Simulated scan of single mutants.
Amino acid sequence: METYLNFMLIRFALIAGGLVVLALLIFAIALTLKRRGRLDEVRRYADPVMRAGLRVAARRLEGGKSGASWSRRQDGRR
């Protein structure tokens, strides 16, 4: 049992460390873009992508309430 808990703790530490590294990388990229004056340009390109992603996520969450209806189209066909 102790070996399993150690494995789970190591796995958690690796995941948390990876998320921290990813956050630092994103911060460094945003800072570099801001210093070069290109952050507004990147925002202009990323905005439609983020909106589309949020729409897809909202559709999945709404459809998930009634079971498998998220895999069907609006007219009921698959």
Rank of each mutant, 00 (worst) to 15 (best):
I26Q: 14
I26P: 01
R73G: 00
A30L: 09
M8Y: 02
R78S: 10
G76T: 02
Y45H: 12
L33P: 02
A52W: 00
V21L: 15
A16F: 10
R36P: 06
P48F: 08
L61I: 13
R73S: 00
G37S: 07
L9C: 03
A46E: 12
V20D: 01
R73C: 00
R60M: 13
R78T: 05
V56Y: 05
R51T: 05
M50V: 12
M8C: 05
G37I: 01
I15W: 01
V42K: 12
G76L: 04
L22Q: 10
S69M: 09
Y4D: 12
L24Y: 03
K65L: 10
L14E: 09
R60F: 14
R11D: 10
Y4H: 04
R78I: 02
L9E: 14
R11K: 13
I15G: 00
R51V: 09
S69L: 08
M8Q: 10
A28H: 03
L19H: 08
G64W: 06
L24N: 14
D75H: 10
L24T: 08
G37F: 04
F7A: 14
A58I: 11
V42M: 13
A16H: 08
T3E: 14
M50I: 05
G17I: 03
G76N: 04
G67D: 07
W70F: 09
R44H: 07
R38G: 15
I26K: 14
Y45V: 09
R77W: 04
L25R: 09
R35P: 04
L31T: 06
G37V: 02
Y45P: 01
R35D: 11
R78N: 06
Q74S: 15
R59A: 05
A58M: 10
M1N: 14
L5P: 00
N6T: 14
L54Y: 03
V49H: 05
R44D: 07
R11N: 10
Q74I: 03
L54H: 01
T3R: 15
V20M: 11
E41H: 05
M50S: 05
K65W: 06
R44P: 00
A13D: 10
A23T: 12
A52I: 00
L22D: 03
M8H: 02
R72V: 00
L14F: 07
V42R: 11
L14P: 00
L33C: 09
L39N: 01
L22A: 15
L54D: 04
A23G: 10
G67E: 06
G67Q: 09
S69R: 14
N6P: 02
F12K: 13
S69T: 08
R35F: 13
D47N: 13
M50F: 07
G53D: 03
Y45D: 13
D47K: 13
S69G: 04
P48C: 04
G64N: 15
W70L: 06
A28S: 13
M50Y: 06
L25W: 12
G67S: 02
S66W: 02
F7G: 05
R35T: 09
A52H: 00
G18C: 02
G64F: 10
F12N: 08
Y45C: 02
A28Y: 06
M8K: 13
L19T: 05
R73L: 03
L39V: 01
A23N: 06
F7R: 13
S71M: 11
L19E: 06
R36F: 13
R73N: 00
N6H: 11
V56S: 08
R55T: 09
A46G: 12
D75V: 02
Y45K: 14
